[in-house]
Amino acid sequence: MLSDIFIDIQKNKKEWLKIKEGNEFEDRFEASLKRYGFNRRIASDKEIKDILLSLKNDVLDKSSDKIIDNIYALKDKSMENCFICQPYGSQNFPDFLIFTDKKIIAVEIKYSSGKSSSPMWNSNLPKANAIYIFGSYGRGDVTFFIGADVLPMNERIELIEFFEEIKKLEDDFKIKMKKESKNNLFAYKFDRGFNVYVRRAYEQNKTINDNAKIDYFLHEDRIKCENNVIEFCNSL
Results as ranks from 00 to 15, higher is better:
Ala148Lys: 15
Asn124Ile: 03
Leu169Tyr: 13
Gly135Lys: 05
Ile175Pro: 06
Phe173Ser: 12
Asp141Met: 09
Ala148Ile: 15
Asn129Lys: 09
Gly138Cys: 02
Gly135Gln: 01
Val142Trp: 06
Val150His: 06
Phe186Lys: 13
Glu155Gly: 07
Glu155Val: 13
Ile133Gln: 02
Ile160Trp: 02
Leu159Ser: 05
Gly135Ala: 02
Lys174Glu: 10
Ala128Gly: 03
Lys167Glu: 14
Lys182Asn: 08
Ala128Ile: 07
Met120Val: 15
Ser116Phe: 06
Gly138Trp: 01
Thr143Val: 13
Trp121Val: 07
Ile131Pro: 06
Ser116Lys: 13
Leu125Ser: 00
Leu159Val: 06
Asp149Gly: 00
Leu151Asp: 05
Glu155Asp: 12
Asn183Tyr: 10
Ile166Trp: 04
Gly135Asp: 02
Ile157Tyr: 05
Lys178Asn: 14
Ser117Cys: 08
Ser136Arg: 09
Ile157Val: 12
Asn122Trp: 10
Lys179Ser: 11
Ile146Arg: 13
Ser117Asn: 07
Lys176Cys: 07
Trp121Ile: 07
Pro119Arg: 04
Ser136Tyr: 09
Val142Thr: 10
Pro119Gln: 03
Phe145Met: 12
Val150Pro: 09
Leu125Ala: 00
Asn154Thr: 12
Pro119Cys: 01
Leu159Arg: 12
Leu185Trp: 14
Gly147Arg: 04
Lys115Gly: 07
Ser136Lys: 08
Ile146Asp: 01
Ala130Glu: 03
Leu151Thr: 09
Asp172Ile: 14
Asn154Ala: 08
Lys179Glu: 13
Lys176Val: 10
Phe163His: 13
Asn184Asp: 15
Pro119Val: 08
Ile133Tyr: 00
Ser181Arg: 14
Ile166Pro: 04
